[in-house]
Design a protein around this nucleic acid. Structure first.
Length: 153
DNA sequence: GCCAACGTTGGC
DNA sequence: GCCAACGTTGGC
């Protein structure tokens, strides 16, 4: 079982949308970056846990935890000419983009601000701080535990 | 809205 | 296969 951090812009899709979906798995789609794609295709597995991170918004930070509800599978939007995520280079037998399904595990009482994460010496090696722009990123077990602890303070 | 970081594309 | 140009991300 592994840990991840999934970024999203909450104005577009955020923790409250996951709350609304309740126990129904929702696709985590629209990932169009090769490094993130490789993780979704090869590494992220059903049963893993992922922090939901809100970016480009008023309250930037970790908003909660989701459980990964499927292994990676091709994102069908890449084949849909009417979708903004359409990719003419993608072939049915050779998909370029993948997604997983997720289900809400916990919404934190307060978003853990990026500022707090940056200022915690135990988190200085987080991928979030080292490679800020990656939309799907690994989290170590220790980092996971620290963030959960911060959420319960 | 600015701009730094950095991933992707495309010409050579 | 290099690298300049370009586009996007995302914090501030």
């Amino acid at each position: 079982m592994r840990y991840w951090l999934f970024k999203t812009e909450p104005d577009d899709y955020g923790i409250n949308d996951l709350v609304q979906a309740a126990a129904t798995p929702v696709p985590w789609d629209g990932i169009r970056n090769f490094q993130a794609r490789n993780l979704l295709r090869d590494e992220v597995k059903k049963g893993d846990l992922a922090f939901i991170y809100h970016s480009s918004c008023k309250q930037i930070g970790v908003a909660g935890i989701a459980e990964v509800a499927s292994d990676g599978y091709p994102d069908p939007d890449q084949f849909d000419a009417h979708s903004p995520y359409y990719d003419e280079r993608a072939k049915q037998d050779d998909p370029r983009w993948f997604r997983v399904d997720v289900v809400l595990r916990a919404k934190f009482a307060e978003v853990i601000p990026l500022k707090v994460i940056k200022s915690d010496p135990r988190l200085t090696n987080m991928t979030l701080l080292r490679q800020g722009r990656l939309s799907i990123q690994p989290v170590t077990h220790d980092e996971y535990a620290v963030i959960v602890e911060l959420a319960h303070d």
